[in-house]
């Protein structure tokens, strides 16, 4: 087949050039929201697989306590923990490692001995039969009032809640953007029908079925949706790359190292197909519905 023939001079309407850009803007927003929420769930996954199954016991130094005594307290706690049911292992984190962890806040050249740093015990829980956290807490504070149990669970739950909320917001925005796109297509199709009412009527009267007339509008909407979608993800991809580039060049431990995976890009790349199909079916429904009003 040669070029697709149309009976309606729709592509010459001035609004036709504008619609892909509006759809493009919508797709851009949807693209960023989707990328953001994909990144967040990726991030949450990394965090929970790194953290769950472990708790940390903080041992606070007493005032002017010599390092030797603090070490003894730590060793004693490690021994107790190792004997406890539901605990797979306990290990005191060496002072040097704690120093590394604190470096971003305290700077490199710190005299460790001069600071009353708390000591940390890394406790691996038996994942199959973990001990109740409350019991563990009481047991520890009975053994040593200066021992605090840091249960990452709370922090993790809160993080999961936050990520969940952010994803909900992102999903809501994508939905709104989708509705706005539908609205634009309905509006554009209606004004197209109004502008070409005479042609629509003639087609109708010489025996065109509704689907034939709808095809004229839905083909245009399909192209517009596709163009808009491509514009949207093109700008979206540039933005994501730009942000990724900027993040790579911030040398900090605070920023998590997450990247969009291949299947994330596939999801984003399918956006133009989605906008094209949404636009097409919206235009079709709009035309079919308004033709129903004709005899």
């Amino acid at each position: 087949m040669i070029r697709r023939r149309t009976d309606l001079p729709l592509s010459r309407d001035p609004s036709v050039r504008l619609v892909p850009w509006i759809i493009g803007l919508m797709t851009y927003l949807a693209c960023l929201m989707l990328a953001g929420s994909l990144l967040l769930s990726e991030l949450l996954g990394q965090w929970s697989s790194g953290l769950s199954g472990t708790v940390t016991v903080q041992v606070l130094p007493r005032e002017r306590e010599p390092a030797r005594l603090l070490n003894e307290r730590v060793d004693k706690l490690v021994r107790i923990l190792e004997r406890t049911d539901g605990i797979a292992g306990a290990k005191a984190i060496p002072l040097e490692e704690i120093a590394v962890l604190l470096e971003p806040w305290l700077g490199g050249a710190v005299a460790l001995d001069a600071l009353p740093l708390p000591r940390l015990i890394d406790v691996r829980l038996d994942m199959i039969d973990p001990p109740p956290m409350e019991e563990l807490k009481t047991m520890l504070s009975n053994a040593d009032p200066g021992a605090l149990l840091d249960d990452h669970g709370i922090w993790q739950d809160q993080l999961a809640d936050l990520v969940g909320a952010l994803e909900l917001v992102a999903g809501f925005v994508v939905l709104l953007v989708g509705l706005a796109t539908v609205g634009i297509v309905i509006f554009a199709t209606r004004s197209g029908m109004a502008a070409h009412q005479d042609v629509v009527e003639v087609l109708h009267l010489i025996g065109a079925e509704d689907a034939y007339i709808a095809r004229q509008f839905q083909n245009l909407a399909l192209t517009q949706g596709l163009h808009g979608g491509i514009i949207g993800i093109a700008f979206g991809a540039v933005t994501i790359w730009g942000l990724g580039y900027a993040a790579d060049h911030i040398d900090s431990a605070i920023l998590p190292q997450v990247q969009l995976l291949a299947w994330h890009w596939v999801v984003l790349a399918s956006l133009p197909a989605a906008t094209a199909l949404i636009a097409r079916s919206t235009a079709r429904r709009t035309v079919m519905r308004s033709l129903k009003r004709m005899v």
Binding site: R5, D7, V202, L203, I206, G207, A208
Partner: peptide
């Protein structure tokens, strides 16, 4: 549409 396409319209439809 050209005269041709106008006349052809009922058949195309």
């Amino acid at each position: 549409l050209s005269a041709f396409d106008n006349v052809a319209l009922p058949l195309r439809v």
